[in-house]
Amino acid sequence: MDIFSDPSLLFCVLLTFKVAGAATCIAGLLGLCLAWRLSSLRGWTGKWIDALCALPLVLPPTVIGYCLIVLLGRRGLLGQWLAEYGINLIFSWQGAVVAATVVIFPLSYRSTRAALESVDHTLEDAARTLGASEWRVFTRISFPLAWRGIFAGLSLAFARGMGEFGATLMIAGNLPGKTQTLALAIYDAFQSGNDNRALLLVLLTSGLCASLLVLAELVGGARFIAARGTQRN
């Protein structure tokens, strides 16, 4: 069986990439902003925000899905407001993006923060004494030195986003040709007894995710070699 001969299969793969890609972009940007602004925050405020950001990592996906429906549903707090502008996130691929974003946000935030904190603070101080504003310190020093770590973390988030199931099912449903991503298609195929299709989808998903992780490892690994090279002189 060839995936390109089966339009529904191709649609699944493309939708999965679209959803995971959009979610990674949003979560990555949010994570970057938050990690940058919060890196100087110590004490209880910082700890609470940290814990709150990690919450989607430990909560069952059903809880996240439920919260999102309460928030974004037709009668939801944000949903009513969005409906006035004609935006409906429930049972749409955009809804799947929102679900995936919430689920992978902790991964992006944590890895971004770790990467930014691994940058030698003396370098940032040196930049400050040379007259650089906080924004310039970030764009010229912190980010260029941390981007490999951030990229590795985002690859992981992307791979996780591709496999997002629970929250997506609740908020976007499982509509073939509309919101059915790879993970949902596997469930669908398995439930309807189409074992061959399920196996193919499982192999496809595993292969895609594995190659993503290898890519992340390659880029992240290069960072450590580069860091060692500069420090050992």
């Binding site: 030698d120 003396t122 101080d125 040196a126 400050r128 040379l130 007259g131 650089a132």
Partner: peptide, 15 residues
Amino acid sequence: PARMRRCGCLFQDYA
């Protein structure tokens, strides 16, 4: 703030 103090610094490990 440091950026407006016009103090040149030579750090221990040169940074």
